[in-house]
Amino acid sequence: MKEGFLIEQERLEHEAAASLKSSGLINDIIRYFRKKSIFVLAYGTGCGAIEMPPTFTSRYDAERFGIRGAATPRQADVIVVSGYLSFKTLRRIIHTYEQMASPKYVIALGSCTINGGMYWDSYNTIKQLDKYIPVDMYANGCMPRPEALLEAFIALQKKIENDEEPSGWERYLENIEWYRQNQRAVLGEDIKPAYEADWYTEGR
């Protein structure tokens, strides 16, 4: 049986996602607006979260680029994984990422998400984030300054506008088995979400 979030995305979001791919004036306009309204999920997963408030408030003012916070994953476009991830948080990140509606993007901060960083020999943090969820943009540094964060967001906007290579969420859906296998290797068999498809299962 297919997992709940896969069915949900096929049923509800397939058309919206397909529109991203096709060309034409209307779709260009859609892409433009999509690029200019990026809602970032309010989830400070690690150290890097301390540079998020300066980025979003008056001094660096990310809102001038159309970037602002969103409270729930259902309304967010971008999740910022701000640094190291412990196993316990990774479980929640996967859960949260799968709740977000596609098109959705992941920005990973700091050296910790690339190769473990400072915590390369820690027994409780993962080393390469893109084995577990797809990453669209890395911002380097420990920790990245607000300018670096803004640069990452703007690079992401360019990526949304050009839409050349497959985005992270497309790769995630295509290679779900590979991602699941990696997730199971560190989290054990019972990765949340453990829920099965319910009201939107086939035949209802």
């Binding site: 997963t45 316990k88 948080t89 027994y123």
Partner: peptide
């Protein structure tokens, strides 16, 4: 808690 556990006390010992 535990979402941010990095095991500093172990890392320091090494």
């Amino acid at each position: 808690v535990g979402y941010l556990h990095r095991g500093f006390e172990k890392l320091v010992e090494r």
